[in-house]
């Protein structure tokens, strides 16, 4: 789904009249829209597929005999998850975490729809770059873009190495 479409639906749901916004306001007394908590929820919602797919792939590659052995040895399902499944799929989980991190770092449409551009609250770097370009401050936009490049490159390199080394 396009980020702006997701952002629009989240805007409706997180409005103080919406179910999530109403629930949040009832619990905290303040609206969730245009707050840091709001953009965290929006980012999580938008990044769920990016987290689930690599993790699912990693879990499905685990030898079922390992799980069967653990169960025969008397481990409970949570213990199997923590002591057998997680250690055997750590590369997939790490790759998933890095993909979500990078995806959230570059998120723009959803953040702008749900968070707007409140300095110090919801004005993330992608929104700041957009605003700098809009106001013809190309130097500032270039500096912020340049700051993001090495971060993204290093993390992508790590993902590449993790997925390449994955034994499964």
């Amino acid at each position: 789904m396009p980020p702006t479409v997701v952002g629009f639906y989240l805007l409706i749901v997180m409005d103080p009249e919406g179910w999530l916004g109403g629930l949040w306001k009832g619990a905290t007394g303040s609206p969730i829209l245009f707050t840091f908590a709001g953009i965290v929820i929006a980012s999580i919602t938008y990044s769920i597929p990016f987290a689930l797919q690599p993790m699912r792939a990693a879990f499905e590659k685990i030898d079922p005999r390992l799980i069967e052995s653990a169960r025969i040895l008397g481990l409970s399902p949570p213990a199997i998850f923590l002591r057998v499944i997680l250690p055997n799929s750590r590369n997939g989980i790490a790759a998933s975490a890095i993909l979500v991190f990078l995806h959230t770092l570059g998120a723009f449409g959803v953040i702008l729809m749900v968070g707007g551009s409140v300095p110090g609250q919801t004005r993330v770097v992608s929104v700041a770059i957009y605003e700098a370009v809009e106001t013809l401050q190309y130097g500032s936009a270039a500096m912020m873009s340049l700051a993001l490049l090495p971060i993204c490159y290093i993390f992508l390199l790590v993902v590449h190495r993790l997925t390449k080394r994955s034994p499964s």
Partner: peptide, 21 residues
Amino acid sequence: MDWIALFLSLKLALVATAILM
């Protein structure tokens, strides 16, 4: 250069990733 925006982006990415994982 908006350092606060950069810091906020990193904070958002870390929090969202931790919760999602």
